[in-house]
Design a protein around this nucleic acid. Structure first.
Length: 192
DNA sequence: CGTTGGATCCGCT
DNA sequence: GCGGATCCAACGA
């Protein structure tokens, strides 16, 4: 079992979401260039949550979230964009954490190359923007996030008083649930 | 500034 | 057939 999987398995989806705040995503692109970003905004979803893709039970689309923790769940939204989740929890229980925003750490040029004409905060301050900047698509479905070309490295947990908890963005079911978390005072969030 | 509508796919009913 | 865990350009004030 990878370290990432070991840590994310016993946690509730909320706890896993919080642990992923401050974690780093390391992306190695096809051309060999590399970028590192720091996660600053996440949302928790699991099979008891009407807003989750796993609420209806296992299907071909959502099977990654019913598998082991620490894998990629990637889905297309509105026919246009891709969104990236990190799976969490034990096998057989469908849960994942949507990565909504991150701040560039290194490799800004590589990120920009995948979002032509975009500069500043708009580079990575939204789930589909981030996925585009990291060049994440369906080919990374179920990818084990302990390996290249897409890795997630947990860092020291961030202090409780640096985390804001709110309702989630853009959902119609269970809009009242407080399952969105973001780092206080960080500009790269999709919406305050 | 804030608001609106268009783009465009696929999993599920 | 439908509608969504979105983004962005084009508007009007």
């Amino acid at each position: 079992m990878s370290k990432l999987q070991t840590i994310l398995t016993p946690l509730t989806t909320e706890e896993a979401a919080i642990r992923l705040l401050g974690a780093e995503i390391i992306r190695t692109y096809d051309d060999g260039s590399r970028a590192v970003v720091r996660i600053v905004e996440v949302e928790a979803y699991d099979q008891n949550d009407p807003a989750s893709h796993t609420f209806i039970g296992p299907t071909m689309r959502n099977e990654a979230m019913f598998g082991p923790a620490g894998r990629a769940y990637v889905y297309r939204i509105y026919g246009i964009h891709w969104c990236f989740n990190v799976t969490a929890g034990r096998e057989g229980f469908g849960e994942g954490v949507l990565i909504r925003a991150a701040e560039p750490v290194t490799g800004v040029e590589a990120l920009q190359r995948h979002r032509p004409g975009v500069v500043g905060l708009n580079l990575t301050n939204g789930p589909a923007k981030l996925a585009q900047a990291l060049s994440i698509d369906g080919s990374l479905k179920q990818h084990n996030l302990q390996h290249e070309p897409l890795q997630v490295q947990l860092r020291r947990p961030v202090a409780q008083n640096e985390i804001i908890r709110t309702t989630r963005i853009g959902i119609t079911k269970a809009p009242e649930m407080l399952r969105r978390y973001y780092l206080k005072d960080f500009p790269y969030i999709s919406r305050a």
